[in-house]
Design a protein around this nucleic acid. Structure first.
Lengths: 194, 194
DNA sequence: GCGATAAGTTATCGTGCGATTACTTATCTA
DNA sequence: TAGATAAGTAATCGCACGATAACTTATCGC
């Protein structure tokens, strides 16, 4: 296989594994297993685990912004707010994408990951303010909702959707639409892990 | 020193270190250094690193709920929403407390930490709904704001408060009050780390 | 003051990890 | 078709980590 294609496959696998286990909790061997290549190959292609994580973050952010721009450009009678909200939740179908970013967001202390996380987060903020035309208040509220969504995904709260009425109430409120996507992804994941 | 007091000192130190480096990123030696005891002692008191983290989480959650209950009981003309919001931000003065919880919130995949994180989060949800009298929508919005605050702390976004106007705008919006607490804690932290 | 118990430490061990080295296999081109 | 180049693997290394074992010091009741 061409190195470039293999690279992309490893990046996708790494996104899932980093999302599940976090930066420190992830091993290059785990990524290699998920990508069905040898562990040294993962290291050789990306140099170090840290560089691989940074590439995962950049790719995730690029996909996020690209999805937002598509949702913004897609003229329809649905209000922009809702269009962007739907686009965000739909990103959860790309397993590990939002979660890998979230892991970076709680590692601000790291001298390498910290600055990348901050600048990545702010590039989303800038998109909202400058491209989507949100006010500061609207942007704050949108981002807050996004962070709650990330938290629900990180906690795997959907696991308790059927068994706990209050979890159901919370998730129904936090995901006014497209909750079905999340429940489906979660079911897939549980199936894969067993 | 009495074992019970030493235990509490280690828990406080562990809260800070887990908050900074995450669960996997934290070493028992790092905690020992922060608590000024030997590494094996940390392990002996708590059994394993995992058990120590679980105790950190339980303590953090207990402090959080206790702060909320105090804010709720404290009769004043300030509306409940604002009182609870202020109480939450004030918890950031207890370094690592909110962040340790946040780290647990993105480790839902872990068979031990996952359930604890979910039940911890839901106990906050239940407080809002049952004790504070929030509606589902109000609770969702409050929690979303909380997750954004956690993210700002995790990213150490305050580091760029002075140098980036958009960061300033974001933080001023996300922290309508008591932002000063955060800026102060961040300054302390930077001083300590250098 | 002495034995027991509680509160610690130093030294060390096994292991899992990221990374390196040396090797192998396939593909393309002169 | 030889030989170069790209795409991979197997074997291994050094080390940092969590945990254990063995030892030391202080405190307190008798």
């Amino acid at each position: 296989m061409r190195a470039e294609d293999r690279r992309e496959l490893i990046l996708e696998a790494a996104t899932r594994v980093f999302g599940d286990f976090g930066y420190e909790g992830t091993t290059t061997a785990g990524i290699a297993r998920a990508a069905d290549v040898s562990q040294p190959y993962v290291v050789r292609v990306f140099g170090t685990k840290e560089k691989l994580f940074l590439e995962v973050l950049q790719r995730a952010l690029a996909l996020l912004l690209s999805a937002f721009r598509a949702a913004l450009a897609d003229a329809s009678d649905i209000p922009v707010h809702r269009r962007l909200g739907i686009a965000y939740v739909e990103l959860a179908a790309n397993r590990g994408l939002l979660l890998s970013l979230m892991h970076a967001y709680v590692l601000g202390r790291d001298p390498v990951i910290g600055p990348v996380g901050r600048s990545g987060f702010m590039s989303v903020y800038r998109f909202m303010r400058d491209e989507a035309g949100f006010s500061a208040d609207e942007t704050q509220e949108f981002l807050a909702g996004g962070m709650l969504i990330n938290t629900m995904i990180g906690l795997r709260m959907t696991d308790d959707y059927d068994s706990d009425a209050q979890v159901r109430e919370l998730l129904d409120t936090a995901f006014p639409e497209k909750l079905d996507i999340l429940l489906l992804v979660a079911a897939d994941q549980r199936a894969e892990e067993s």
